[in-house]
Design a binder for these strands. Structure first.
Lengths: 361, 361
DNA sequence: TCCCCACCTGACACCGGTACCACATCGAAC
DNA sequence: GTTCGATGTGGTACCGGTGTCAGGTGGGGA
C-alpha cells in the first residue's frame, strides 16, 4: 500500500508517522547503525505505508558519492558503441551503479561540455571514448582527474595521456587481416577508411605522420596495414589509401577510384562497417564479384556479414567485453586500488568466412 | 587558470576569495537576482581563479529539478534503440537536459528496478520502451505518475494505459508489406518472428488473442499481416507463423520448417533484423535464391540491407525521430502543457529494393 | 533638514539525506 | 549503593546550493 501524494515523503515524515526520532528512522531506512527490532519494525511499516523512497540526490549530497558512472561516446546509435555502453551498463548495474551516457557526435567541444556535465553531476568515475588526438587536446580529461574523478579511456587511447585505456590491438588485428590477404596472393590491397585528409600523402613518412596524428584506432589500423606490407617487402602505394570524409558515400567513391586505377586493387581492407558497405556498393556498380574478383576483409562483425553472399570475412571486436572491462578497471580505481595505469588490451577474433580468395589471374 | 585542489571549490569559498557575501556570489554564479557590476566582476574573477563549477546535485536538491531525463529501453546495444536513445539525447541536450539511460534486457523486473532508480534520482521525466504487456503489469509506471513524474512511452504503447506514446503504425506498415507480396502474386506468406509461444495456434481467434496479449509491436505487426490476408480473402495458415524463442537461431529453424512444408511459402515477412538474418541463413542452407525463389520483406532498414545481393526490400523506422518526438512530448508535459494524452504516430518508409518478385511458377 | 524609498547586499532557513555524539536507561560488578 | 559500561535513541551539524527577507546605504523630494 503506497501513498497517492505527489510530493514524496521524507525520512522526517516517516519518523513522525512511526513515532520515533529522525535519526532512528534514518538508521533503519539507510541500513546503518543500530535500531532495536521493535522500532525497526515500526519504521519499516510506516515507510511502507507512506511509500517512502530515499532521495538519491540528498544521499549523494551528504555522502559525496553518487553511485553513478559517466560514459562519453561518439555516437550511441553506432552499434559498436551500443555494445560498449551495454557492457559498461551491465557491469556497473551489478555493482549498484547507474550510468549517465552522453553522445558527442565525434566533436571535441561537445566532449568537453559532456565532461563538464559529468563533473557537475559529481559522477564517481568517467569512461570515455575520446575524440582527443593528443594530450594537448585532452585538457578536459585532466580537468576531471584534477578533481579526483577517476577516468578510463575505452576503444581509443590518447597518446601521452597517462591513463588506463581498455582497447583492442588494432594494429595487430589490421596486420593479421592484411597478412591473410597477402597469403592468399594479393599484392595490391586497398585501405578503405582512414585519416580524413584531403591531400593524398605521397611519401611513406608523410602517411605515418598523418596516421599518428589522427584518431587512435584509425592510425593503428593504418600502421598494421603498413606492417603487413613491410613483412612482404611491398612498397606502399598512396593510390590505394582512401582519403577524404569518413562516410559510406566517400568510401564508395574512393573504392570506385581505386578500381579504375591502371593497376586496380585485387583486395580491400575495410576498417569500419560503413567503409565495407561503401566498398560493396562500388563493387556492385562495377559488376565485380566479392571473393572471386575482389577479396574483402572488414572490421566489426555483424550478423549481416554472415549472411552476405559470399559470407564476409571479418574481424570481430568484443564490444561488450570492452565495456565490461572498462567498468572493472574504473571500479578498481574508484576503490582506490592504485594499479599502474596503462593499456588493457582485449583480443579480437578473426572470423574466417568466404570473402577472401586468391586474386583472379 | 584553475586550481589544482582535488576537492572542488564551493560558492562559500568563492565568496570569501572575492570578499563578498555568500548570497552575492550565489546570485552572480547562479545567474539570478541583482549584483552590481563591480562585485559581479570580483566574483567572476575569483570563480575563474578557483576553477569553480556549480554542484548540480546541490542545485537539484534545492530547486527540486534535476535537468535530467530518464530513459529505459530493452537493449541499448540494439541499433534500433540506439537510434531512439540518440534522438532523445540530442533533443534533450538542446534543452539543457541530460539523459540517464538504463537497459533492461527486456525483463519486466529489471524495468521496475530501473524505474525506481529514476524515481530515486529525481529525474524530471521518463521515456520508456516498456516490456509491460498490459496495465496490470505497468504498476511501476503508474507509480512514477503518482509521484508527478511525467512519463511517455516510446516504440511500444501499453494497451489501457492512458499515457502519451510515440510509435509507428506497426499494423499499417506490416499490412503494406504483406500487400506488396500479395500484389506480386504470393499466396503462401510466412510470418517470421512473433509471439514467443510454444503451442502453434490452430484457430484464428486463438492467434489474435495471443497477439493482443503480447509485446505491442509484435501483436500489431501480426495483426497487419492478418489484415492483408483478409483483404485478399486468404485464410491464415498456422504453419506459416513462426513460434518459439525470438532468436536468430530459432528463426532459421522455423523458416527451415516452413520451407519443408508440402506447400512451402513463396515469400517471407520478417518483423525484425534477426528474423531476417535467420531467414536468410535458412534460405541459403536450402540453396534457395532470394527474390527468385523466395521473396522477402523485412523490418528495420540498415545499410547492410542495401548491399545484399539482391538488395532487400525493407520497412524503415524513423528511430531518431521517434526519440526526438518522445522527448518533445515529454518536455511539453514537463512544461505543464496539458495536451490530451494519446498515440503520436510517426510514418515509416517502405524502401522498395529487389527482394520481391513474383513467385516461381 | 528630514524622511522616504529604491537599490544592493548578506544572513539565514531550507532541500533530504548522513553521521557524529551526547545522553538516558539498565544491568552487572565491586 | 555507587560506579561503570554496554546499549539504544535522538539532537544536530553538515553537504552546497537557492531564495526570502531584513537591513544598510544613498539620492531625491518635501
Amino acid at each position: 500500500m503506497t501513498s497517492e501524494r505527489s510530493v514524496p515523503p521524507t525520512i522526517s515524515e516517516v519518523a513522525e508517522a512511526a513515532g520515533v526520532g529522525r535519526s532512528t528512522a534514518a538508521r533503519t531506512l539507510g541500513g546503518y547503525g543500530y535500531v532495536s527490532p521493535e522500532l525497526r519494525e515500526r519504521v519499516l511499516a510506516a515507510a511502507e505505508r507512506l511509500g517512502y523512497r530515499a532521495n538519491a540526490l540528498a544521499r549523494s549530497m551528504s555522502t559525496g558519492v553518487s553511485q553513478t558512472l559517466g560514459v562519453i561516446v561518439a555516437d550511441i546509435a553506432n552499434p559498436f558503441f551500443g555494445g560498449v555502453v551495454r557492457g559498461i551498463s551491465d557491469a556497473s548495474r551489478a555493482r549498484g551503479f547507474d550510468t549517465l551516457v552522453l553522445s558527442t557526435h565525434e566533436d571535441l567541444d561537445e566532449e568537453i561540455a559532456a565532461t563538464n556535465v559529468l563533473i557537475d553531476k559529481r559522477v564517481d568515475g568517467i569512461i570515455v571514448a575520446s575524440a582527443a588526438l593528443d594530450v594537448a587536446s585532452a585538457g578536459h580529461i585532466e580537468q576531471a582527474r584534477a578533481r579526483d574523478i577517476p577516468v578510463v579511456l575505452v576503444d581509443r587511447a590518447v597518446p601521452g595521456l597517462d591513463l588506463d585505456a581498455v582497447v583492442i590491438d588494432n594494429r595487430a588485428a589490421a596486420r593479421e587481416a592484411v597478412v591473410r590477404l597477402l597469403d592468399a596472393g594479393h599484392r595490391r590491397i586497398g585501405f578503405v577508411w582512414g585519416p580524413p585528409v584531403q591531400a593524398r600523402p605521397r611519401r611513406r613518412r608523410e602517411l605515418i605522420d598523418i596516421a599518428s596524428k589522427n584518431l587512435w584506432t584509425d592510425g593503428e589500423r593504418l600502421q598494421g596495414y603498413l606492417d603487413a606490407l613491410d613483412d612482404e617487402g611491398i612498397v606502399f602505394d598512396a593510390d590505394l589509401i582512401m582519403v577524404g570524409a569518413k562516410t559510406e558515400e566517400n568510401a564508395q567513391a574512393e573504392v570506385t577510384r581505386m578500381l579504375d586505377l591502371p593497376e586496380a586493387p585485387t583486395a580491400l581492407f575495410c576498417t569500419e562497417n560503413d567503409a565495407m558497405t561503401g566498398a560493396l556498393r562500388a563493387l556492385r556498380a562495377r559488376g565485380l564479384r566479392v571473393g572471386a574478383d575482389v577479396s574483402l576483409i572488414g572490421f566489426d562483425d555483424s550478423s549481416w556479414a554472415a549472411v552476405m553472399e559470399p559470407p564476409l570475412t571479418m574481424i570481430e571486436q568484443p564490444t561488450l567485453a570492452l565495456g565490461a572491462r572498462a567498468a572493472e578497471v574504473l571500479f578498481a580505481a574508484i576503490d582506490g586500488e592504485a594499479g599502474s595505469t596503462g593499456l588493457h588490451t582485449l583480443v579480437t577474433r578473426f572470423v574466417d568466412r568466404a570473402s577472401v580468395a586468391p586474386p583472379p589471374r
